[in-house]
Amino acid sequence: MHPRVFAAVALAVLMAIAGGPSWAQTTLPSPTGPVVLSVTGEIGRTNVPGGAEFDMAMLEALPQTEMRTFTDWTEGQQIFTGPSLTDLLSAVAAEGSRIKASALNGYAIEIPVSDAAKFGPIVAIRQNGAPMSVRDKGPLWVIYPNEDQDALTPNPNNDKSVWQLRTMELQ
């Protein structure tokens, strides 16, 4: 028991001293709960052969970003919370320029890595404070900011706003 407590304390101290980005420099822990996200491809940090697997707790341990926004599939303003795409990519030391994002139902689309800095999307794990079920387009939903709720033109990022996200392959 002792070494694990020590390790946890040491990790906490490290995080407190060096702030968020230093988390990325530590090794990636292994998932203990059900895997909800698999990242594969051009990444520098893995916890299974050729990939990084996340359970809900690991995603919750990443720095959380809150986004108040509108979507074309929800009514009214929504509050989504989760790691930003930037934080998630740095957690796996991602390389490459494109992400092939796939959903539970087989839907797949390419997301440019540059979107992370350009639009600041997040991988939402909570909607209005509550975890999302598959029925509510969860458990993971890529959310792009969308300030304009009644624009005539649809948001160009709609196709990349993958709900029921399951895997990301860095290319």
């Binding site: 074309d72 599939w73 009514e75 539970l104 387009k137 029921q164």
Partner: peptide
């Protein structure tokens, strides 16, 4: 069960989604 949930999730999109 997951496929059931996936099917379930399509209904709100059709019935209430602005799109």
């Amino acid at each position: 069960l997951m496929k059931y949930d996936l099917l379930w999730s399509r209904f709100p999109i059709f019935l209430t989604g602005p799109e």
